[in-house]
C-alpha cells in the first residue's frame, strides 16, 4: 500500500508570540515550531497500518517554507519512509483552501491507497485541508476518525468517526480514501535515537509551489487580535497562600463548601 500522511508545522501554543505590525500576522520565536500534535497521531496510525500490511510505504508531506522540512524529519524519525516538501517560501501562513489545492496538484497523478491527516491544525483549527484535498482528488473522506481497520484485501476501511456527546458512527469507506485522524486514536511513539539519526539522511523530495498551478485564494485575513478576558474575570493577587485563602472564601460565600 502507498500511504501519504499530510503534516503541518505549527507554533507551540505555549511559546511567546507577537502580532505583526500589519495587524494580520503572528510572529513566533525561532525555536517554537513543531509538528502539529494531531498530525503525530496520523503518522502513528500510518506506521501501524504498515506494520500490518507488508510492502507498505509511508510518505509524509508538508507545505511550507524551508523550516517546515523539520516536521518531515520528525515524521521520518518516527518511522516514515520518505518526505515530500511542497516548498512555499514566505512567512505568510497559507489558507487551508490553498494548501489543499497545492497538495492535490502535486500528488494528483500518483498512486495512493490512503491519505491520512490530523483532524485539524493546532494553530488555525479550521479542519479544512483534509476534506478539501479529498474533494479535489474525488476521494471519499471521513473526518475525526477514532478507530480504523483495513480489510485484508486492502480494499475497504472500517472506520469509527467521533460524534458529539460520546457517540461514534461506524462507516465503511472504499479505498483509496482520505481519513482525518482525531487525537486519542493511538499513542504516537517517541522517535528512538537511531531513527532520529537515520532520518537525517532519508530523502526529501522537493516540489516548488511556484511551479504548481496557482491555488485559489477565497478568503483574506483582515485582523488578528489577542483574546481579551471578559471584564468580569477577577484575577486573584498576592502570595500563593493569600490566593488560596481568597479562593476558599469565595467557595464559602457561594455556599459550596
Amino acid at each position: 500500500m502507498h500511504i501519504l500522511v499530510c503534516v503541518k508545522q505549527v507554533p507551540d501554543a505555549e511559546a511567546p508570540f507577537s502580532i505583526g505590525s500589519d495587524g494580520r500576522s503572528v510572529n513566533v520565536a525561532e525555536g517554537a515550531w513543531r509538528l502539529n500534535g494531531f498530525d503525530a497521531f496520523a503518522v502513528e496510525e500510518a506506521l501501524r497500518i504498515r506494520a500490518a500490511f507488508p510492502d507498505t510505504t509511508v510518505e509524509a508531506l508538508t507545505v511550507g517554507p524551508a523550516r517546515a522540512s523539520e516536521v518531515l524529519r520528525r515524521a521520518m524519525a518516527m518511522g516514515a519512509d520518505r518526505g515530500i516538501h511542497i516548498l512555499r517560501p514566505g512567512e505568510d501562513d497559507p489558507l487551508p483552501g490553498e494548501v489543499a489545492a497545492l497538495i492535490a496538484s502535486a500528488v494528483g497523478g500518483r498512486r495512493l491507497d490512503l491519505i491520512l491527516a490530523g483532524v485539524m491544525a493546532e494553530d488555525d483549527m479550521q479542519g479544512q485541508t483534509g476534506p478539501m484535498l479529498a474533494e479535489h482528488l474525488s476521494l471519499p473522506c471521513a473526518t475525526a476518525v477514532m478507530a480504523q481497520e483495513i480489510t485484508p484485501d486492502g480494499g475497504t476501511a472500517r472506520v469509527e468517526r467521533e460524534l458529539e456527546g460520546g457517540f461514534r458512527e461506524a462507516l465503511e469507506v472504499s479505498l483509496p480514501a482520505l481519513l482525518t485522524v482525531q487525537s486519542g486514536i493511538n499513542h504516537p511513539r517517541y522517535p528512538s535515537l537511531s531513527h532520529v539519526l537515520r532520518s537525517r539522511t532519508q530523502p526529501i523530495e522537493i516540489i516548488y509551489a511556484g511551479r504548481l498551478p496557482v491555488p485559489p485564494r477565497r478568503e483574506r485575513i483582515v485582523r488578528v487580535t489577542r483574546r481579551e478576558t471578559s471584564g468580569k474575570t477577577l484575577f486573584l493577587a498576592g502570595t500563593s497562600l493569600e490566593k488560596a485563602e481568597q479562593l476558599a472564601d469565595y467557595f464559602l460565600e457561594k455556599a459550596l463548601l
Partner: peptide, 17 residues
Amino acid sequence: TRSTLKGKLSVEIAPEA
C-alpha cells in the same frame, strides 16, 4: 471571527468569493 492558537487569538476573516 474565529479562534486560533488554542483560543489565544481571535482572527477576523473576509470571504473573497
